[in-house]
Design a protein around this nucleic acid. Sequence first.
DNA 1: CTTTGAGTGTCGAGTCCTCGACAGTCTGCC
DNA 2: GGCAGACTGTCGAGGACTCGACACTCAAAG
Lengths: 241, 241
Amino acid sequence: MQNRLLAALPPGDFARLSPHLVPFELERGRTLHEPGDRIDHVYFPLVGVISLMALMENGAAIESAMIGPEGAVGLPAAIRQRTAISRAVVQGKGRALRLSATVLHEAWTASPALRDLVDAHGEGLYANVTQSVACNALHSVEERFCRWILSCHDRVEGDTLALTQEYLADILGVQRTTVTAVARSLQDKGAIRYRRGLVDIIDRAVLEAAACECYGVVRRTYDRLLPAAQRQVKSETSAEP
Amino acid sequence: MQNRLLAALPPGDFARLSPHLVPFELERGRTLHEPGDRIDHVYFPLVGVISLMALMENGAAIESAMIGPEGAVGLPAAIRQRTAISRAVVQGKGRALRLSATVLHEAWTASPALRDLVDAHGEGLYANVTQSVACNALHSVEERFCRWILSCHDRVEGDTLALTQEYLADILGVQRTTVTAVARSLQDKGAIRYRRGLVDIIDRAVLEAAACECYGVVRRTYDRLLPAAQRQVKSETSAEP
DNA sequence: CTTTGAGTGTCGAGTCCTCGACAGTCTGCC
DNA sequence: GGCAGACTGTCGAGGACTCGACACTCAAAG
């Protein structure tokens, strides 16, 4: 069990949910829901990243939050029927478990532990988005680039991310040429290697030094609100060994 | 009753809350809570604005959301004991009703209508913050300035806002000199008049034209999620007469 | 093996905003 | 009345990012 929320459920509560959890392949670029869609399914990533994108009237889309194995997409539908606020897009290949919103709602009604988890997840997500408001206003593209790469790295397997500069430019809400310049600069510093749609993380310490505080703040918020993950595959270099 | 949430409560539910609602003067600049504080009181503005500020490690503070008579500060404490995520600062003189978090929690337990309202408010606030993530990344200072002035105007009495350019620069996360330039430009267009800590709204239509879409998006989101206000003092010019 | 298209590198003019500095002006307080 | 402090106006150099353009390279499909 690799999803932090599901792992935190008491065995009995999980057992009742378990038969309804459907394995779901996360395919890069797939849209799970659009703003205004009724949320019929909730996705618990096991590995991989789903981006919640805010859409502007001119068609621009920018990431408001990233959700990986520490959370779930559409979770507020546990509380009551709900329409999506953001577009949810799969960022890269991965695996998730899918659950019908109605089943989830019934489980939520029955399980205090699940109610607590849904609440904690909502608070964490809110804190995350709040941080991004400030981040987008105050921090440079390079800082935000590093924050994003690190957050993504935490949520996937391996040290290679499949993403183009064009895509990253969208996510960050900047021009592609700016991303190119930043990527080049970080490559020169030995932090990453960029090769045609793939980013290799070479040196996390360099990335952490170049990232804004937002990376650590959000990560620690989730650690505070949600039960610890079984095993931390990657750790902040500043943390205890 | 001028608070939209309280006004939406069924009479019986409100009656049970009513004896515990304490009138509270909103004094400009007063801090209601800091991040990490336990939320002991919830504030329902009747008139006036409270800013939720995200704090950075270097001391910078930038607004993540504005709360007025359409909402409440600290409302999630209704669900369970909670620590504040943002700093809550009174933006300008006004009035509110204050409620103990424990009383609110008991009422929340007893009243399905209140639970729905808390949930709807949370969703609206989340949507608001999400919009601001995109806004801060994609929109010019002038657009954001106008959005902010309009949002504020909706939530106070009269057409004059008490705020300095320095304060506004903080809120928006930009330099004061930039605010000065933008204010000057809008004054030249006849949208506002700026005089030493006071902004007169002269022509809302001009402001709405110069504001980014975020103003209308957030406003309509609240209208969709919360029961209509009794009387709309100020309306979007694009709305029906 | 060749073609096509996606992805990247680069250039340069232009704009928006920063950042520090300083002068001027209004308000409230003594 | 006059002083102190808060607030606003202005200047200018510089940096970060935009925006359009184009050439190049790699990978996959035929």
